[in-house]
């Protein structure tokens, strides 16, 4: 026989056994502290807006999100967010800043392909599905809520 005899099943087991594993515990610790810190900072900012600038709760909430988004986008453009992301993992993916990063990163990356089909189209490579399935779920929630309210 001129052919290796290891079967697919045997080999996939070998791969599973030899593959280095992520260190979930330290990754989770990093995610917890970095993600927590972003949320905590948002809370302090929110508190400041609401109590010191007497902005309504709703507008303060929007302002907090918008500020986080702008900061995250600028850090993305400066090449800092990817470094943070490497360390923090989900801690910088799950907060709204991760959503901003997912739009700003392809926007910068694809500017060489032009502002229409590069920046404009690729910006939604990751964020598009988020909006699509968010809207879908909200519509389903709405239909159920609407029927419920008529009963």
């Amino acid at each position: 026989m001129n052919h290796i005899t290891v079967t697919s099943n045997e080999f996939l087991k070998m791969v599973e056994k030899s593959s280095p594993k992520s260190n979930i515990f330290t990754n989770c610790l990093k995610a917890f502290f970095s993600g927590g810190l972003i949320c905590g900072a948002a809370e302090i900012y929110f508190y400041f807006l609401e109590n010191h600038l007497t902005i309504s709760k709703e507008q303060a909430g929007l302002l907090v999100s918008a500020t986080l988004i702008v900061i995250a986008a600028i850090l993305t453009g400066m090449g800092i967010y990817s470094k943070l992301g490497k360390f923090c993992g989900a801690g910088t993916i799950v907060p709204i800043t991760g959503f901003a990063n997912s739009m700003a990163s392809p926007a910068v990356e694809f500017k060489k392909e032009g502002f229409i089909l590069g920046v404009g189209a690729k910006m939604f490579a990751v964020a598009g599905p988020v909006i699509v399935y968010g809207v879908l779920t909200s519509a389903i929630v709405g239909i159920i809520y609407f029927i419920g309210s008529k009963l």
């Binding site: 594993k21 992520s22 993305t76 990817s82 992301g85 490497k86 990163s105 392809p106 990356e109 990751v126």
Partner: peptide
């Protein structure tokens, strides 16, 4: 994209 803050698996 390079600037996406994701982790590279080991």
């Amino acid at each position: 994209p390079l600037e996406l803050g994701s982790q590279r698996p080991p």
